[in-house]
């Protein structure tokens, strides 16, 4: 038996909107730790890792570890039927082939339940060891989204370079080229507006902008984004979900032949 009650139901709606473009079908894993997911896109270039910790739910019952295969587009369709202020409860029976999403309006005068068929998904979990990154950039998530969107009108790839001077996003295309440099800026009024660069070594990596733009669908989840870079590793783009966990996107770099 599984019963997870999330008072801030809009979080789950936003999570689905942020990952459904990248991944079609995925297993949601439920354990005493929380509600989680790890899934790669079909080309195995990008991976999403989601964690919603059990403590973040108002009620969290998970009698045994469960893995529930869901089509994310169908799940998003159902969650779209929940109001932004609704409380969402996820329910499933052990060994069952459906999951139920229950939506309660804040005043309890409307209660809906939507039952969705589960699917069997062969998922391959990648082991991702904890890594020391050469540079970690924390910046406003809206600024990062704007940069990715702007650069994708010029080119297909972005070179992200971190030096003492700041973080540089560069692209090149048929019509020309573009460079956007963000300097460390910690003297702003609000901490969420700061750009903070924590660099141990300079780093420069090339990535497909198509994926970066897809990751920025998570912007509504967090005011800030952190971008962790190492010269020999995929980039990690992380959106923290307030008091609950995170959505992390991993993206393998492009290399010069």
């Amino acid at each position: 038996m599984l019963e997870l009650r999330l008072v801030q139901g809009s979080l789950l709606k936003k999570v689905l909107e942020s990952i459904k473009e990248l991944v079609t079908d995925a297993n949601f894993d439920c354990s005493s730790t929380g509600f989680s997911l790890q899934a790669m896109d079909s080309s195995h270039v990008a991976l999403v890792a989601l964690l919603l910790r059990s403590e973040g739910f108002e009620h969290y019952r998970c009698d045994r570890n469960m893995s529930m295969g869901m089509n994310l587009n169908n799940m998003a369709k159902m969650l779209k039927c929940a109001g932004n202020d609704d409380i969402i409860t996820i329910k499933a029976d052990d060994g069952g082939d459906t999951v139920t999403f229950m939506f309660e309006s804040p005043t309890q005068d409307k209660i809906s339940d939507f039952e969705m068929k589960l699917m069997d998904i062969d998922s391959e979990h990648l082991g991702i060891p904890e890594a020391e990154y050469h540079a970690i950039v924390k910046m406003p998530s809206s600024e990062f989204a704007r940069i990715c969107r702007d650069l994708s009108s010029i080119g297909d790839t972005v070179v992200i370079s971190v030096t003492k001077e700041g973080v540089k996003f560069s692209t090149k295309g048929d019509i020309g080229s573009a460079n956007i440099v963000c300097r460390q800026n910690t003297s702003v009024d609000k901490p969420e507006e700061a750009t903070v660069i924590d660099m141990n070594e300079p780093v420069s990596l090339t990535f497909a902008l198509r994926y970066m733009n897809s990751f920025t669908k998570a912007t509504p989840l967090s005011n800030t984004v952190s971008i962790s870079l190492s010269n020999e590793l995929p980039v990690v783009v992380e959106y923290k979900i307030a008091e609950m966990g995170y959505v992390r996107f991993y993206l393998a770099p492009k290399i010069e032949e």
């Binding site: 195995h44 991702i128 393998a252």
Partner: peptide
């Protein structure tokens, strides 16, 4: 030319 690497080049399956 640029080549897109896959995640398996960095991580292995559990």
């Amino acid at each position: 030319r640029e080549t897109q690497l896959r995640l398996e080049a960095f991580y292995s399956f559990n």
